[in-house]
């Protein structure tokens, strides 16, 4: 199963919303994924174990893993393009 790491400043609020939306959107496209949340500051040390990193804020390195930095899962602007991009990394 592909693994996605969702990061935000505190790992409490925005990443919870992003993770839920992302899971629903990918499920609807037939992707079964495992999604974890973390603080943006934890990304550099955790990224290696994941296929894609999604963050609402700046992160300081992703161990070479693809990073999607976006607020689209909160605001709706550009959400379809982001889901396509993420789905592309899961194939």
């Amino acid at each position: 199963m592909k693994k996605i790491l969702v990061a935000c400043g505190t790992a409490v609020a925005t990443s919870t919303v992003v993770a839920k939306k992302l899971e629903e959107a990918l499920k609807a496209r037939g992707f079964a994924v495992s999604i974890d949340q973390c603080k943006a500051s934890e990304v550099p040390s955790k990224a290696a174990a994941y296929d894609v990193i999604v963050s609402t804020t700046e992160v300081d390195g992703t161990a070479g893993k693809p990073l999607i930095r976006t607020l689209s899962f909160l605001t709706g602007i550009g959400i379809d393009a982001d889901i396509e991009k993420i789905a592309g990394f899961l194939k």
């Binding site: 409490v12 925005t14 919303v17």
Partner: peptide, 9 residues
Amino acid sequence: AAGLASLLT
């Protein structure tokens, strides 16, 4: 209990 997340939603 994810109060902020529910407001964001």
